[in-house]
């Protein structure tokens, strides 16, 4: 192109000097290569996905049809926290069991913010063998590299086995107005608050009624 060697001329010289090999310029036109480069760059920038979706694993209890209702409900009431998830990201929580034949427990209203249900869960979990703090300490040790991941899991497992009957149990009960997001948020809170035993259930009629009441007389 423009860089072609053109200063060959000087007719007279030709006779005397040897014919030299043409010195072609070392410059090449890079424009097409750059074009292609940027085209590819644009393409890959647009098509790439950075954040891989993550997953949370959930183990559902095996549905055993031979269990009687009495056996199914064998959860120590004083350690049971019920979370009813309902519309507008509201959580109602209460302790124990809502028995229609006895005075119903009062519902506490909360939400999924930092100062919402999380504070309650952490406080309650700490009340029982300091469970939240203990596991959190181990987590920090893992992060600092003082504790192996496998050892950590062993320790947590042993800790939970030791206090199996007296640790906090959370029953998650999304009602019919709950969104999937609420369920994931609630499961997330379980992970954040280091709660070992929780179950995903459905709100029963008594609880539906309690929520309806709470919505009416708020």
């Amino acid at each position: 192109m423009a860089e072609l060697n053109t200063d060959e001329g000087g007719g007279g010289k030709k006779k005397h000097s040897k014919q030299r090999a043409k010195k072609s310029s070392t410059r090449i036109d890079m424009t097409p290569m750059v074009d292609l480069g940027f085209l590819l760059l644009t393409f890959f920038i647009l098509t790439t996905t950075f954040s891989k979706p993550k997953a949370m694993e959930i183990n559902m209890p095996v549905k055993d049809k031979d269990l009687t209702d009495a056996e199914k409900n064998k959860v120590p009431a004083e350690h049971t926290l019920n979370m009813i998830l309902t519309k507008d990201n509201v959580v109602y929580w209460y302790f124990g069991v809502a028995d229609p034949n006895k005075p119903l427990p009062a519902l506490n209203k909360s939400n999924f913010s930092k100062d919402g249900i999380r504070k309650v869960l952490i406080a309650e979990n700490n009340k029982r063998h300091n469970a939240f703090k203990q596991i959190e300490d181990w987590k920090k040790e893992v992060a600092a590299g003082k504790l192996e991941e496998a050892d950590y899991k062993e320790k947590v497992k042993a800790f939970r086995a030791q206090y199996k009957t007296s640790s906090l149990i959370v029953l998650l009960k999304p009602d019919k107005d709950a969104k999937y997001k609420n369920v994931v948020d609630a499961l997330d809170e379980m992970a954040i608050c280091n709660i070992g035993s929780y179950a995903l259930l459905e709100a029963n009629q008594v609880e539906d009624m309690m929520v309806a009441n709470a919505n009416t007389y708020k």
């Binding site: 954040s51 949370m56 694993e57 183990n59």
Partner: peptide, 21 residues
Amino acid sequence: ILQEKKVNKFNLITNMETGSA
């Protein structure tokens, strides 16, 4: 339905939490 089909362990796919929480 999954439990009827004896799938008791499954994953819920989520995004990575960003900041706020």
